[in-house]
Amino acid sequence: MSDRSQLIETGKPFAFDAQRDAEFERLATRYPTRESLILPSLWLVQEQEGWISAEAMAYIADRIGTYASMVYEAATFYTMYNLQPKGKVHICVCRTLSCYLLGKQEIVDYLQRELGIKPGEVSADSQYSLEEVECLGHCGTAPVVQINGEFYENMNVEKLKDLLATLK
C-alpha cells in the first residue's frame, strides 16, 4: 500500500447535503454506538462528492462526536475510500490469482498505454482513473474489471476498447 495519509484539503468547509443528512440520522438509529457511524459516514461523503477531503473527515468526526484521528484511521485503512478525486470513469482492474492467470496484465498494460496513466493516477483531463485492486470475487468470469461500481466480466482488451467507447 502506498501512503494514504497525505490528505487533501479543499479549503472549504464540508457538510452533508439534505439527502445524506437524512440518511445519517436514519443510520444513527441502527447502531448502539456513535462510532459505528464512521464507515457509513465515509461512504455518504463519497457518494456525495466522489472522494473524501480532510474537511469532510473533520466534519464526520465532529458530527459523530468522535476523535478526528479515528475517522482518519478508518479513511486511510480501507482502500475503497477515495482520498483524492477520481476520474469520471474510474476503472478498477482485479489483479489477483485467477484474474492474474487469465490476463489482467494485458488489460492493465493496454489501459496504461491508451489512457496515458499508471495505476493510482488520474488522467490530466479528469476523464479516467486507473487502479489495480485485489480479488473482486468474480473469479469464475475472470478477468474482471469494475468501472464506477459496475462489474464487467470475461474482459479482454477488445471488449474493453468497445466498453470505454460507450462510457465516454
Binding site: L39, A74, F77, Y78
Partner: peptide, 24 residues
C-alpha cells in the same frame, strides 16, 4: 454494514471491529 476494501475484515473479530467503526 458495508466494508470498504479490506480482506482482513473477513476475519470474524476484524469484522466486529469494522462494524464498531474502527480499523479491521
Amino acid at each position: 454494514h458495508r466494508g470498504a476494501g479490506a480482506y482482513v475484515c473477513g476475519e470474524e473479530t476484524a469484522l466486529l471491529e469494522s462494524i464498531e467503526g474502527r480499523k479491521g
